[in-house]
């Protein structure tokens, strides 16, 4: 039989029914239901219509990017004879080319669909890279303090003071432009905001008593960092990642626009805008549709990020 403490020790201010308590406490009875933080976050997130819309958009984008080969109506690299007018101008939307063609007679819709691949790969991978760097540096700076903190945070300041577009352009022009170089460069340029956020969070969390308690129970520094501090950073990490993806997609578009991004003929939204720019009066669709794609993607990630922030921290909500 289970040990039962005296009456005044059970529950706060409840009248204790010994029989019932004994039954509840026995190992045979089922575990009491519990709500995890995740469930609550999910519930709150589900109520946010805008964020849900953003999430749906992202899911659609991902599906489109992954299955581009089957979804795209044409090969994005083929230059169709029927895709140009007799004067050599791109054609507008038609039954054959839904969004028209570009200046070389390639199907615009297919190119936009394939361009989603580049944008998403860069958005996710570059951000993941920046995230890993930022989290590791931020955790170390906040937890170990001292010279580690000084070194990392001053480096962050220097990076932030530097014009990042110039820095990225310099890096890329030294290296050979390409998809994975772009990922690395954007990661190197964008680790600073995450480092700052994580550093600030760690500074406040490490002063809480549960960290002392963990230390007292004999946890090593590594265990405290990864089992106690990191789970508390999940909310800012997720939020800033989703917001960061939007920035990164934009960054890629800018770099591609100035010709330092993904090299042609691989389609990329920024590069498509830059190619279509000279024709924006006669063939505005060349600029409008890729621009819409960028706007939609950035907006979707921003909406999801905002929604997640509200879901994780209901007190900060301003409505």
């Amino acid at each position: 039989m289970a040990y039962l403490p005296p009456h005044d020790m059970v529950a706060d201010g409840e009248v204790v029914d010994l029989e019932k308590t004994r039954a509840d406490w026995s190992a045979d009875s089922p575990l009491v239901e519990h709500r995890s933080t995740w469930n609550e976050v999910r519930l709150r997130f589900r109520k946010d219509k805008f964020a849900l819309a953003g999430l749906v958009t992202i899911v659609v984008l991902v599906i489109v990017a992954v299955f581009a080969k089957w979804i795209a109506p044409h090969n994005p690299l083929t230059q169709y004879d029927s895709g140009l007018t007799m004067d050599g101008m791109p054609v507008g939307s038609s039954r054959h080319f839904w969004l028209g063609t570009d200046t070389l007679g390639r199907d615009l819709l297919s190119r936009i669909i394939y361009g989603a691949r580049v944008s998403l790969v860069i958005g996710i991978c570059a951000n993941g890279f920046a995230l890993v760097l930022g989290v590791i540096f931020g955790l170390m700076a906040g937890f170990f303090r001292g010279w580690v903190e000084t070194l990392i945070m001053r480096a962050t300041d220097v990076m932030m003071a530097f014009p990042i577009y110039l820095f990225a352009m310099a890096l890329i022009s030294v290296l050979k432009p390409g998809l994975w170089i772009l990922v690395v460069v954007i990661g190197i340029v964008y680790w600073t905001p995450m480092t700052r956020v994580i550093h600030g969070e760690v500074l406040s969390i490490r002063e809480k008593e549960f960290v002392d308690a963990a230390r007292l129970t004999g946890c090593t520094n590594r265990r405290i960092l990864f089992r106690h501090l990191l789970p508390h950073l999940v909310a800012p990490i997720i939020v800033y990642t989703s917001l960061g993806i939007a920035t990164t997609v934009l960054f890629e578009a800018v770099l591609s626009y100035i010709g330092l991004g993904v090299q042609p003929p691989t389609p990329s939204w920024g590069q498509m805008i830059s190619d279509g720019q000279p024709y924006y009066l006669s063939a505005p669709h060349l600029v409008i549709y890729p621009g819409l794609a960028i706007t939609l993607t950035v907006l979707a990630f921003n909406l999801v990020g905002d929604g997640l922030r509200d879901a994780f921290d209901p007190q900060q909500r301003r409505r």
Binding site: A2, Y3, L4, P5, M9, V10, A11, T21, D24, W25, A27, S29, P30, L31, V32, H34, R35, S36, T37
Partner: peptide, 20 residues
């Protein structure tokens, strides 16, 4: 479970979170 009983808590709550 033993420890929870010792301090007067229902041992079947061990999968709950502190905020509960």
């Amino acid at each position: 479970r033993e420890l929870l009983q010792l301090v007067g808590l229902n041992p079947n709550t061990l999968n709950r979170y502190p905020h509960e």
